[in-house]
């Protein structure tokens, strides 16, 4: 079975700094990593391949250096990868991103399961996985916390929702978006790293994909970012110290009074 895992390269969020003047992100010197939630998608895809045979192909749309993310995915155990990169894709919103990734998956052909991380830690939209499913007209299961069964005809998963979990059965092929609970990602192996260094990662541009040039990048994106700004810090923390016996009582009283004033108790 062919497992396709779309991944995204994101800035390491712990390292993100903000330019106080412009309110924009300082990307210089910030390390790029595979979106942490995509690691769960890669892991479950590799495990399913180990059980059922086949191949895992990771794909990533981004700038040329997103090739690094593909190689990391191969080091973890993916069989191959494709970088999808073109100036024409710059400025894509989730609609235009899903459009191009869907076109790339069509070109790869014959998907069994397409497995995505539930969302990326930078954009944080969670819209691209469902978007790919919609463009490819495939069934979709989101928030997957466990893959219970897969064969050529059907896939049974647990979908985590607010009140518990649903057991869903979907026809194949299908798109899954997975959450952390689905599998613990493994570390790259030495053999994987060696393979990742040597393997050829093809780069596909707009001309390699069957797409309408008017629907690519910023031009093809329905949404526009009007402005980016820093959240106003509106909270003033009333901080009391209660490090000894005598101060605990008054601190607790003050907190309870505070909660009462805010009508929280």
């Amino acid at each position: 079975m062919r497992f396709i895992v779309p991944i995204k390269q994101v800035p390491e969020t712990n390292a993100v700094r903000m330019d106080e003047e412009t309110g924009t992100m300082v990307r210089e010197g910030v390390e790029s990593i595979i979106n942490p939630l995509d690691l769960y998608a890669i892991e479950i895809a590799i495990r399913l391949r180990e059980q059922h045979g086949g191949e895992v192909i990771s794909i990533s749309m981004g700038p040329a250096n997103a090739e690094k993310a593909i190689r990391e995915a191969i080091a973890m155990g993916c069989d191959s990868g494709v970088l999808i990169t073109d100036k024409a894709f710059a400025g894509s919103d989730t609609w235009a991103t899903s459009y191009v990734l869907a076109a790339a998956i069509r070109r790869i052909g014959d998907p069994g399961l397409i497995i995505c991380g539930e969302r990326a830690t930078d954009g944080d939209t969670g819209q691209v996985g469902p978007g790919i499913a919609s463009f490819l007209d495939l069934p979709l299961a989101t928030y997957v916390g466990k893959v219970e069964h897969v064969d050529n005809d059907v896939c049974r998963v647990r979908r985590l929702i607010e009140s518990g979990y649903e057991v869903l059965e979907t026809d194949m092929p299908a798109v899954l978006t997975v959450v952390k609970e689905v599998a613990d990602p493994r570390l790259p192996t030495l053999r994987g790293k060696q393979k990742a260094r040597k393997v050829e990662v093809p780069a596909w541009g707009a001309d390699d994909l069957d797409t309408d040039p008017n629907r690519l990048g910023l031009k093809g994106s329905p949404t526009r970012v009007v402005k980016i700004f820093r959240p106003q810090v509106t909270r003033q923390c009333r901080k009391v110290t209660a490090v000894d016996e005598e101060s605990i009582g008054p601190a607790v009283d003050e907190l309870v009074e505070f909660l009462r004033q805010r009508e929280l108790i």
């Binding site: 969020t13 930078d122 329905p222 009007v226 700004f229 959240p231």
Partner: peptide
């Protein structure tokens, strides 16, 4: 976005 570090205003 970006883990709540920024706010973005978006229109269509």
């Amino acid at each position: 976005a970006i883990g709540g570090n920024i706010l973005a205003t978006i229109k269509t």
